[in-house]
Each structure stands twice: as C-alpha cells, then as structure tokens.
Design a binder for these strands. Structure first.
Lengths: 218, 218
DNA sequence: ATATATCTAGGGGTATTCCCCCAATAAAAT
DNA sequence: ATTTTATTGGGGGAATACCCCTAGATATAT
C-alpha cells in the first residue's frame, strides 16, 4: 500500500494556489499539507512539519526560489523540490536545477502532467516539461557555441570603460567625459575605440543598443 | 431566480485555467462554458456560442489581450470583460481599461475576491483589485504631471522618421540610410534633426537610448 | 616571470554628425 | 479653409566621432 505524498505549495499567487489545491484534493495519493506565499514561510513550515515535496514557484517575493531551494536541499534533504514557473527562461531553469531541484514544469502544463510530475519526482526521478527540456538543450548548445565560435560573445568591459560607457549613454560628448573623469580627450577616445572593438559595434548608435540589449552596465 | 453566469476563461496557462475551473465549478450561479488558450480562439468561440463574461488574461500569445478586448467590445457587446494578469503594470491596466474592460484583477487575488469580481462585473459594475486601484491613481497623477510639465513626453514619430530611426539603431550611417531609402543625404539629415528635436536628445547616443527605453519602434 | 590587459596620452587625418539657414510639395489636422 | 506637420532637398560650417599609428606605466593573470 502506498503512502500519501505530502505536498507543500509555495506560490505568491493565491488564485494559483487555490487552483492547484482544487486539482490535488481529488487525488487519493496526494495531500496538500500546507501553502506558503513567500520564501521564508517555506523554511518556517519545514522546521515544524514535514513534507515529501515542495511545489515551488521560482519567482517568489522576499526570498528567491533559488535561495529556498538551496536551504531546503541542505537542511531538509528528505524533501524533494518540483520547481514551477510562468517562464521558460533559460536562466531560471539552469540555475534552479543546479541548486537541487528535481523537476521543472511550467504553469501552462495541464492537470494530468502536474500529477505525473509530482508522482515522478516523489519516486526519486526527475521530471521536466517538454518545453523545458528544449530550453535545457538550447542552453547546452549555446554554451558549446560560446566557447567555440565568437559570435554574440562580448568580452569583459573594464571598470574605466564602463565609466566612459555610462557617460556616453547619458549623452556626454568625448570632451565632457574627459572633464568629468579628469583625463585627456585622447584617453577617452582610446576607451571609446576599445568599447567599439569589444562590442563589435560600428558606431555609437550600435554601442548604445548593444549595451542596453546585453545589459553591460549592470 | 437568478440565471447562471456563463464564463469563458482565456489564459494560455493550462494549469491556471484548471485552477479557475475548480474554483468556479463549486458555484451554482457560475458556469464555465469554455476555455481558450489564445486570442483568436476567444473570437472564434464567441462567434458560435455566447458568454456573459470573459475572464481574459492580458498577456496572451498570438493576439494581445487588448486586441481581443477591442474586438469583443465591438462585435459582442453583450459580453463583459474581466481582465486578469500577473502584473500590476500601469501600461497594461490603463490600456485595457481604455479598450472596454469592465474589471481588472491580479492573479494573486484569492478565491473569494475572484467570485466577487465576476458577480460584480456581470452585474454591470466595474471591479478592480485594491492594488490595481492604487496603480490607476498613480497613473492619473502622472498624466496630470505629464500634461503640465513637459518631461518624459515624446511627440509622435512619423512613419519615415521611424524608418530612419530603425536604420540608425542598426548602425547605418546617414549615407547608407540615404541609399537604403533612395533619398538624399540631406533629407536623412533633416529626419535625424527632427528625431533629435522630438526626443529631446543631444546626440545619437541619447536618441538610441531614449528609443529603446520608450519602445518608440513598436 | 612573462604574457596579457588596462589606463594613460599623443599626432594627424577622414568620416560623420550636428547646427544654422532656407524652401517647395503634399498630406493631415483644426 | 487655413494651419500645421511630413517629406523632400540644398549650402555651408563647426563640432564630434572614428581611424590609423605609437607608447609608457601599471596592473592582472597564467
């Protein structure tokens, strides 16, 4: 005889949690033992009661899903994690899987797939939505490409170059930048030249676009 | 005796639709008559069957929630729209309300509020989540500010100017743009000058930044 | 330790942008 | 109907950006 799978639902969208609740309550082998609306609550809950599996939203307020994942894996190793998210974002997927999540499904997966995912992960295996699998594949391809070909790859921009770049985007001219940073006009020109080379831009317009698109100033 | 409210649920996240389904099926006065996972399906559905209310996700694939809203209001005036979204984004809220939605709730609202919202909107009134009301207030404050001070306001950019702007951002020089568009170099300069004036930019760098930040090419 | 990258700065020149002035035609808004 | 905006184009000039070259001092990584 199988035991019931004790599930903790962690998502800040009440309506969503309600929905999952409604879906799971019809299943005899699954029991929702708690619901949390932010990261810290998950940890608090697990300190008091046990759960076999956490249905964990990647994008939680207060504490990131990835942070929660880390802690759960370290302190509550008996509890599995099934990540769940709106977004099939490469960064989310790879990061949370690297921090101990056993599965990743999207919020646009149906009732049946949700149940399959819960039972699979609880059984000690991993489960990914079809779309997520593709994303993971893409990610692997990319990391291979990035190391081979040099397209789309932007070398590290130095501290000083960043300062110059920031001022360029704020519409400073080369002269103004030189005064602002107390360096020669020629030095600023040199930095600009390096920036164009590194970003593979043909001119300032491209430099600004590439900077914003690739968030080079973060 | 009251009739049942016929609700059509339109959201691309299956799991979410399942959840709403589960919530609504317990209510005697509400009946879910259909579910759609993209914009065009909503229109198709309404052509065949009727619905009193559409629970419409603002961010739908294929066709934007706002587009759907427009069409429903024009062609199916008997059908009310209750917009629903993950995001309490000012732009989403104001836009869809300007196109005929009778209510706007967030996905983090609870079961009870969802039911209240549906019944309120069906009754011919409007309903907004508390958070959304605040956003609307903010928006009103802003538009007042914007009409007084001239900051952040960008005049409409013409068709030809957009073409030029697009090429600027793609790193074309004035000469190249002239060849591409089969016009004189002087004409392109004239357009560039207008673009700088309209965006209040000092140079190309600022023009590109402002264009991207304000999504002027959409 | 030796190589690589960074920050600094110059000379000299070309290309490009930006500014002022102007103006005709066509379309769109009031 | 009249005004405003869009689109087109020009002359001329100042400011800025971009390119080539070199090069020393310093820091960082292998």
């Amino acid at each position: 005889m199988e035991e019931t799978i004790k599930v903790l639902v962690a998502d800040d969208h009440t309506m969503f949690v309600d929905g999952i609740d409604s879906i799971l309550k019809d299943e005899r082998d699954i029991e929702v033992v708690g619901r949390c609306y932010d990261g810290p609550s998950v940890i608090e809950f697990l300190k008091k009661e046990s759960a076999d599996l956490v249905l964990l939203d990647v994008n939680l307020p207060d504490m990131n899903g990835i942070e929660v994942c880390k802690i759960v894996n370290k302190d509550f190793s008996g509890t599995k994690i099934l990540a769940i998210s709106m977004f099939n974002e490469e960064s989310f997927v790879t990061e949370i899987l690297n921090h101990g999540a056993e599965g990743y499904i999207l919020k646009n997966t149906g009732r049946e797939e949700l149940l399959t995912a819960i039972r699979t992960v609880n059984g000690g295996k991993t489960y990914f939505s079809k779309d997520v699998t593709q994303t993971i594949m893409k990610s692997l391809m990319k990391s291979r490409k990035a190391s081979n070909s040099s397209k789309g790859f932007i070398p590290k921009i130095s501290r000083r170059e960043k300062e110059v770049l920031k001022l360029i985007i704020e519409e400073f001219t080369t002269q103004e930048i030189a005064k602002e940073l107390f360096i020669s006009l020629k030095t600023v020109e040199s930095h600009r030249s390096s920036l164009l080379a590194k970003t593979n831009a043909r001119n300032t317009a491209g430099l600004v676009r590439i900077t914003i698109e690739n968030k080079l100033l973060d």
